[in-house]
Simulated assay, not measured.
Amino acid sequence: MRIQDRIKNAAEHLTPSERKLAAVILSDYPYAGLVSIQDLAEHTEVSAPSISRFVTKIGLSGYQEFQRGLISELKEGQRSPLELHEGNRAIEGAFLGDFISRATQQMAVSSAAITEDQFARISDLLMDPKREIHILGGRVSDSIAFVLSFHLRQMRKGVYHLPANIEAWPEYLLRMKQGDLLFVVDFRRYQPNLLGLSRSAHDRGARIVLMTDKWLSPIAKYAAEVMPVPIESGTLWDTYTPALAVIEALATKIAEDNFEQTRARIKAWDAVRLTEQEKMP
């Protein structure tokens, strides 16, 4: 079990000082817990013996095991395809059938990782006409972000897919207003430039929605909503199939809930698209 899950599971049994400690650790997770127990005590104004009792209360033997767990999680979030290949269970039988079976299992898990309430909140944020929407993903995961941005642009105005060239990002940051939305897709290995972008957007008052994996991109500390999607396929490549399913579910819900607006937008979109096609030689 991840350290953050241990902390959340024990939340109702924590003392006021332990809740204060938990809040500090989770606000800068996992880095806040990687300092010495003395430094953590000074930073949180919670005594070292109290920190030791807190660690025991969440089911660990001591502060060293607490830190080993955090370091292990941090390493998991940075594992390369070559590292993932070591020790993974080989595909059994028909390759395509087994691979799809694994992806299907992860899709089922994703529906439990994201609650219906959170799913509805994020849908409402994405369709709120008062907010402009900015979307971007990582090296590979930007393909997931693109699917969302394409669907949203057919349903509403004010949707922008940021280009991969970071030199163009200031234009979009300058456009962001208080309450606008930055939707980021960031799976392991997490990208420092996406973290920097999210920090800057957060400082400008934008709300961050993060789609990530269970180890959590560092962007989570700035995010108003975090969707942890399972990605493990048991092969050297993580699977983005569950992430794509969640994105398609979001797009479909938004279109269905706002069908009259969506219909009008698609009609106008198609009219322009078909007119431009007729002009082509």
Rank of each mutant, 00 (worst) to 15 (best):
Y63T: 05
F259V: 12
K177A: 10
G138C: 04
N193D: 12
Y222T: 04
A249E: 10
A223D: 00
E73I: 04
G77E: 02
A23Q: 14
G59S: 09
E232C: 00
Y29E: 08
I254Y: 06
S110M: 14
S141N: 11
E167K: 10
K214M: 05
P170S: 09
R265L: 09
L40K: 10
F146R: 15
I254E: 01
S110P: 00
A224R: 11
T44A: 15
S50Y: 06
Y240R: 00
I25T: 11
G234P: 06
V35S: 12
L210G: 00
A220S: 15
L244I: 12
K214H: 11
L34C: 04
F259H: 10
W215Y: 06
L216T: 04
R204T: 00
I133W: 00
T212Q: 03
A249R: 14
Q106S: 04
P81I: 07
A32L: 08
Y29S: 05
I266W: 14
R79D: 00
Q106A: 03
F259Q: 09
V35Q: 14
F146V: 11
E276F: 11
A271F: 11
G87F: 09
L125M: 12
E248H: 07
A41H: 05
Y240C: 01
S80K: 04
V55R: 10
I71T: 11
D203R: 13
E167H: 14
Q154M: 13
Q64I: 10
P192A: 14
P281M: 10
V209A: 06
E12F: 09
L181F: 03
E256P: 03
S72M: 15
